[in-house]
């Protein structure tokens, strides 16, 4: 365990990286349609397309309604998405591993 990066450091570093990506890279990401959307538009796969049921969501299409600066709006939406995803996944995984019936795996430090 001596000088390894701790799991906390790794996770905090990874999350800061994710936040940097949504704030600084996402606003400059390509706004062209993705592969499926492009194929759909080119070949009329979208004749039956309906707007999403949640198209009126305050976070719809990765922008926060009421925030005018489009880059900031996208960054904030992304940060909220990162936080919500993290929260759900951590909670679910913790509940799952707490309910396991067998004894926990041996700890990393076991010599």
């Amino acid at each position: 365990m001596n000088c390894r990066t701790s799991i906390t450091t790794l996770v905090v570093g990874g999350l800061l990286g994710a936040l940097a990506l949504v704030f600084f890279v996402a606003p400059h990401a390509s706004s062209s349609p993705d592969g499926l959307d492009k194929v759909a538009a080119d070949h009329q796969l979208d004749t039956g397309k309906r707007a999403s049921t949640v198209a009126g969501s305050p976070l719809a299409h990765y922008s926060v309604s009421g925030v005018d600066d489009s880059g900031l709006s996208k960054g904030l939406a992304g940060a909220l998405g990162v936080a919500i995803t993290l929260g759900i996944m951590l909670t679910a995984t913790k509940l799952l591993t707490r309910r396991r019936s067998r004894p926990p795996a041996p700890s990393s430090a076991a010599p």
């Binding site: 799991i7 996770v11 990874g14 994710a18 990162v82 995803t85 993290l86 996944m89 951590l90």
Partner: peptide
């Protein structure tokens, strides 16, 4: 790490 992975994929 599972939590981080999910959040990172979202970003």
């Amino acid at each position: 790490l599972v939590g981080l992975t999910s959040a990172f994929v979202f970003a």
